[in-house]
């Protein structure tokens, strides 16, 4: 039967430092005028951080595939749900949907 391997504490420290650096990077990025591209960079950093936590702190890297499967299925359903919902928003036009005015957004 499975006995989860016991990875070293050094790995946990390395992941922690990586998470701190990535958090600092997201925070500094918010002060750079970056527009839509910046949003994707911010989300890519968040996804990277979440993946690091899931793989190493939550031991998905070390353990059986069943747990990965459970979590990935939940994420797959979220993608379906979110994709269809957002597609609905994109496909609608006024007056069936209200859109915000284009206001000037000053730099931080």
């Amino acid at each position: 039967m499975e006995q989860a391997t016991h990875p070293s504490a050094a790995r946990a420290v390395a992941v922690w430092i990586a998470l701190l650096v990535l958090t600092a990077a997201t925070w500094r990025l918010a002060y750079v005028d970056r527009g839509a591209f910046g949003f994707f960079v911010g989300m890519a950093i968040a996804l990277t951080k979440a993946t690091l936590v899931a793989l190493f702190f939550m031991h998905l890297w070390d353990q059986r595939a069943t747990q990965r499967l459970v979590f990935l299925v939940a994420l797959a359903f979220l993608v379906i749900l979110g994709g269809l919902t957002l597609a609905d928003g994109v496909a609608r036009f006024p007056p069936s949907i209200e859109r915000g005015p284009p206001l000037p957004v000053p730099r931080r």
């Binding site: 747990q67 459970v70 939940a74 209200e98 915000g100």
Partner: peptide, 29 residues
């Protein structure tokens, strides 16, 4: 616990989808 976490992801995920929907409509605000 992973099954429970899957339902938790859906709970927060739905809120995040709602957020994404309204952010796409009111980006400046």
């Amino acid at each position: 616990m992973w099954l429970f976490l899957a339902t938790e992801s859906l709970l927060f995920g739905v809120l995040l989808i709602g957020y994404a929907f309204y952010r796409s409509l009111f980006p400046a605000v």
